[in-house]
Amino acid sequence: MALQITEECINCDLCPVECPNEAISMGAEIYEINADLCTECIGHYDQPSCVEICPVECIELNPNKKETLDQLAAKYTQLHS
């Protein structure tokens, strides 16, 4: 699954810098994750770097964007080829 940022976001500016796919950008009020670019850091790190760095733990799985590990890996390959 891709990830999403919840309303608890405090706009600390840490997550956009951490995202290797540049999937995180400022939305209308809080940061947002572009599900088409999010691979949960598959191909880059063992764990999603944005989740690891978030001080308020507001990044969670996006139930509207279910993907298998194979699909996430394929997305990584497509984004970085």
Rank of each mutant, 00 (worst) to 15 (best):
V51F: 06
A2V: 02
K75W: 02
H44D: 04
T6K: 12
E8H: 11
E32R: 11
G43P: 06
N64H: 07
D46W: 01
I24R: 02
T68S: 15
L14Q: 04
I53M: 12
E29D: 14
L37K: 14
G27M: 05
E52Q: 13
D13C: 10
C15I: 00
V51W: 09
Q4E: 11
I33T: 09
V51H: 06
L61H: 10
E57R: 12
H80G: 01
G27S: 05
Q78Y: 08
V51Y: 04
L79I: 05
I10V: 15
E18P: 04
I5F: 00
N21F: 02
Q78K: 15
G27Q: 06
H80M: 12
H44N: 09
C50Q: 05
A35H: 08
K66N: 14
P20D: 02
E67Y: 13
E40G: 07
H44P: 02
P63Q: 07
C58L: 06
G27F: 04
H44G: 00
G27N: 07
D70W: 09
N62G: 04
P55G: 09
K66W: 11
Q71N: 08
E52M: 12
E29W: 11
P63F: 07
I24P: 02
K65A: 15
S81V: 04
D13E: 14
Y31A: 05
T6H: 08
P20G: 04
E52H: 06
L69N: 14
V17G: 06
K65C: 14
H80V: 09
P20E: 01
I59Y: 01
I33P: 08
I5A: 00
D36N: 15
C12D: 05
P55A: 10
Q4D: 01
N11D: 14
D70Y: 11
I10M: 13
C58S: 12
C19Q: 01
I24Y: 00
M1Y: 09
K66R: 15
K66F: 13
M1E: 10
I30E: 02
C41W: 05
P55L: 10
C19A: 06
D46E: 12
M1I: 11
E22R: 08
I5R: 01
Q78G: 03
T39A: 03
V51A: 12
T39E: 01
E32A: 07
C38T: 08
K65L: 04
D13R: 10
I30T: 11
T6E: 12
C41L: 09
C54H: 00
L14W: 01
P48Q: 09
P63Y: 05
P16M: 01
